[in-house]
C-alpha cells in the first residue's frame, strides 16, 4: 500500500507588479467560509494581510505601468482583455470552487456567477475601442476650428472591491477601470479574498502588462485610508466601503479631496451604503467616472 500523500497547499499571496510577493509585514490572516448545508464556518486558507507599504509598492508599480497601458492602442487593450476572459474560462473550475466556498453558494449558482463574470469581462473588453466614438467627437464651435474631444484615462485608480460579490462584483469594478487605459490598485474583499487572487493568476498568465492590475488582500479599514490619502493616486472607487468593517467612506472621500481625486461613491447613502445588484446591465458610468476629456482646437481655414 502506498503511503498517504502529503497535501500541497497553496500560499495565497499579493499580486504586485506582475509578481506574487508575501506582504512586506509578514502578516497573514485566516479566511473562513460557510458552505451550503454547513452550520459552522470552516477554515479555508491563510491570505496575506497586506500593509500600507504593500499598497505603496502597488501604487509605484501602477504608476510605472500607466505609460505603456494608456499608450497602447484601444484595439490592443481590447485584445489583451479578451485574452483575460479566455484564461478565466480555462480556469473556470478553480473559479467556481473559489466562489462556491467564498460566498457559500450551491455549485450550480457558483457556475452561473462565474459565467456572468467572464461575460462581464468580455463586455468591457469590447468597449475599449468604441468608447471614444460614443463619448468623444466633433464639437460645434463659433470659429474656423475643428474642435475635437476625446476621453483619456485619468491614471491610477484605487479600487475598493465589493465585500460580498467576490468575483462578479470584483470583475465589474476592475474591468471598467483598466479597459479605458487606467491602471488599478485593487483592495480585495476582506472576508472573501480568494477569487481575487485566482483572478490575479489569470491576469498574470494572460497578456496584461505587469503593474496594470495590482491586488492587495487584507483589512479594508487599515489599508483604504492610505490609498485615499495617497497623492500619486488619481481616483478612488469606494464601492467596497459598503459593509466593510471599520470603514467610514465619508472620511475616505475627505482624504481623497486632498489631491482632487475622482471619487466613485458607494451606492446608497451614509452608513446605509449598499452593494449594487451586480447582475444588472452595468452601463458606462464605471468607465466614464475615471476618464478625463481632452479637447483639441485645430484651425481649419476658410
Amino acid at each position: 500500500m502506498s503511503p498517504a500523500r502529503v497535501d500541497v497547499r497553496k500560499t495565497y499571496k499579493l499580486y504586485i507588479d506582475g509578481a506574487f510577493p508575501r506582504s512586506e509585514s509578514g502578516r497573514s490572516y485566516a479566511v473562513w467560509s460557510t458552505p451550503v448545508g454547513r452550520a459552522n464556518p470552516r477554515f479555508l486558507a491563510n491570505a496575506a494581510m497586506g500593509s500600507r507599504k504593500d499598497a505603496r509598492d502597488a501604487v509605484v508599480a501602477a504608476r510605472g505601468a500607466v505609460k505603456g497601458w494608456a499608450g497602447a492602442t484601444a484595439y490592443n487593450r481590447g485584445q489583451v482583455l479578451y485574452r483575460v476572459a479566455e484564461v478565466m474560462e480555462s480556469r473556470r473550475a478553480q473559479l467556481v470552487e473559489d466562489v462556491r466556498l467564498s460566498e457559500g453558494l450551491a455549485p450550480s449558482r457558483a457556475e452561473a456567477v462565474v459565467s456572468a463574470a467572464i461575460d462581464r469581462w468580455v463586455w468591457y473588453a469590447g468597449w475599449t475601442d468604441k468608447l471614444a466614438q460614443v463619448l468623444g467627437g466633433l464639437n460645434p464651435v463659433a470659429g474656423p476650428y475643428f474642435d475635437i474631444s476625446a476621453p483619456e484615462p485619468t491614471g491610477i485608480v484605487a479600487v475598493l472591491a465589493p465585500q460580498r460579490s467576490s468575483l462578479l462584483g470584483l470583475v465589474s469594478v476592475v474591468a471598467p477601470v483598466i479597459a479605458t487605459g487606467n491602471t488599478a490598485v485593487v483592495l480585495a474583499s476582506q472576508e472573501r479574498p480568494l477569487p481575487a487572487i485566482t483572478l490575479a493568476e489569470a491576469l498574470a498568465t494572460s497578456d496584461v502588462p505587469a503593474g496594470v492590475v495590482n491586488v492587495v488582500t487584507g483589512l479594508t479599514g487599515e489599508v483604504a485610508p492610505w490609498l485615499a490619502g495617497h497623492r500619486d493616486v488619481n481616483a478612488i472607487d469606494l464601492t467596497g466601503a459598503a459593509d466593510a468593517e471599520g470603514v467610514d467612506w465619508g472620511e475616505l472621500e475627505r482624504a481623497a479631496a486632498e489631491n482632487l481625486k475622482r471619487v466613485l461613491r458607494p451606492a446608497g447613502t451614509g452608513s446605509d451604503a449598499v452593494e449594487p445588484d451586480w447582475t444588472a446591465e452595468p452601463g458606462l458610468s464605471r468607465m466614464t467616472t475615471f476618464l478625463e476629456t481632452k479637447t483639441v482646437w485645430h484651425p481649419k481655414g476658410r
Partner: peptide
C-alpha cells in the same frame, strides 16, 4: 520628507 510632513504618501507630481 513630504510623506513625513503630511502623513500621506507623495508622488512624482510634487
Amino acid at each position: 520628507r513630504q510623506k513625513l510632513r503630511t502623513g500621506a504618501y507623495s508622488g512624482a507630481d510634487y
